[in-house]
Amino acid sequence: MSQLKIAVIVGSLRADSFNRRLARAVEKLAPTEFAFSHIQIDDLPLYSQDFDAAYPAVATRLKKDIESADGLLFVTPEYNRSIPGVLKNAIDIASRPWGTNSFAGKPAGVIGTSIGATGSALAQQHLRNVLAYLDVPTLAQPEVFVHFKDELIADDGTIRSEGTAKFLQGFVDHYVAWVRRFAH
Rank of each mutant, 00 (worst) to 15 (best):
A177H: 10
D16S: 15
L139C: 13
P142S: 14
G119Q: 11
I159D: 05
S48Q: 09
A35D: 07
N80F: 02
P45G: 05
K149G: 12
I6W: 07
A183G: 06
H184Y: 02
S48E: 11
D65H: 01
T158D: 05
V110E: 09
K149Y: 06
G99Q: 11
G170T: 13
I159N: 04
G112P: 10
Q40G: 00
K64C: 03
I41D: 01
S2I: 00
S82R: 08
Q124E: 07
P137I: 12
Q169P: 01
W98D: 14
P77D: 12
Y55I: 04
A15H: 11
M1N: 14
R181E: 12
R96A: 10
D43N: 14
L134S: 07
F148P: 12
N129D: 14
L122F: 15
L4T: 00
A69Y: 00
R181H: 09
T158E: 10
L168G: 09
D65G: 04
P31Y: 09
A35L: 14
L13E: 00
R128V: 15
H147E: 14
I115R: 07
A57W: 02
A15T: 15
S12H: 00
S68I: 01
V10K: 04
N129F: 14
L134D: 03
L152M: 05
A54G: 05
I159R: 09
W178V: 08
G105S: 03
V58P: 15
I91R: 07
D150L: 13
L122T: 15
A121D: 04
I9Y: 05
L168I: 07
N129H: 13
L134Y: 11
I153N: 14
T100N: 14
K106H: 15
I115A: 15
I39E: 08
A53C: 06
A104M: 14
Q49R: 13
L152A: 12
I111L: 00
V172T: 15
K63C: 11
V86I: 14
L46E: 11
T100L: 10
V136Y: 08
R180F: 13
N101K: 13
K166W: 05
L13T: 02
Q141G: 10
E78K: 15
K166A: 12
V10H: 03
T138E: 04
A121C: 03
P31I: 00
I93A: 05
D173H: 08
Y79M: 10
Q169G: 02
A165W: 06
E33W: 04
I39V: 15
R21S: 04
G99C: 02
G163M: 02
S95L: 01
W178E: 10
V172Q: 13
A117C: 08
A59K: 00
S161F: 00
